[in-house]
Design a protein around this nucleic acid. Structure first.
Lengths: 128, 128
DNA sequence: CTCGTTCTCAACCGGTTGGTTGAGCAATGA
DNA sequence: TCATTGCTCAACCAACCGGTTGAGAACGAG
């Protein structure tokens, strides 16, 4: 199976059904049956989805009678947030730098293109 | 191809090679060849990865001579951050609530659950 | 025009994924 | 004890994914 935690989390959330489950689990824990209700796929398919979420560390299951209530875990969200925040900030910074360049430029002038073997200063696309 | 934007973004980031590319693109734009350098996979494979990132809106390409410099886009990170933040907060809140319940509980007492209207008899963890 | 460089398209392959159906375990209520 | 409820395991299938190789488009330099 796919090695690292981050990959598993992202992969788990790449499915809309699974994201919907996560959304509903923020409101309350739920059994597999409850989770399955809104979708018209088999119970087994839902069970598989839950398993994927579990292996990604996004949810945990306990046992209460025959039920296996599914519970959303917060920790992994922190992991993601941390990863995301780092790159979001970097990307935004570069974005802002680009804005500065554009702002200081007379209308419609194509910037002198930097040779890209240098640490590439921004250049590029018409931003909406 | 897979419908919604969020799914595409998560799927794109579920691959460690692609995440590494994103990381490097926060430092500077890069050509496909430059991106390919560190990995020992074919150039075509790298090209495919870039395509996936592009279709997810994480990256854009302009044209400069034969080169197609790859540029990191910030916007999609905001989309993700927004999604994430919403659920992270919710998950954390529920987590804290559980802590409160546990803290205010004499040892071994079955909690009268703050039963949110939901049919969820949640029940904490210590199940052998 | 021809050559080299950069990159993409197309076809293919093995493994994974999202779904199915069928069988079956485990706990409870009767 | 036994049927019911809640869920999982196993086998299977079509579609997709990450990788390969081979061919070739687009562009700039001589």
């Amino acid at each position: 199976m796919a090695a690292d935690p981050l990959s598993r989390v992202f992969a788990a959330l790449a499915d809309p059904t699974r994201r919907d489950m996560v959304a509903r689990l923020t409101l309350a824990d739920a059994t597999v049956n409850e989770l399955a209700a809104p979708y018209d796929i088999s119970l087994q398919a839902v069970s598989k989805h839950v398993r994927v979420l579990e292996e990604a560390g996004l949810v945990s299951r306990s046992r209460s009678a025959q039920r296996r209530p599914v519970h959303l875990e917060a920790e992994v969200f922190d992991l993601m947030t941390k990863w995301l925040e780092r790159y979001r900030r970097a990307a935004e910074e570069r974005y802002r730098r680009l804005d500065d360049v554009l702002a200081s430029m007379p209308d419609g002038v194509t910037p002198t293109l930097p040779t890209d073997d240098s640490p590439t200063p921004p250049e590029g696309g018409a931003r909406p």
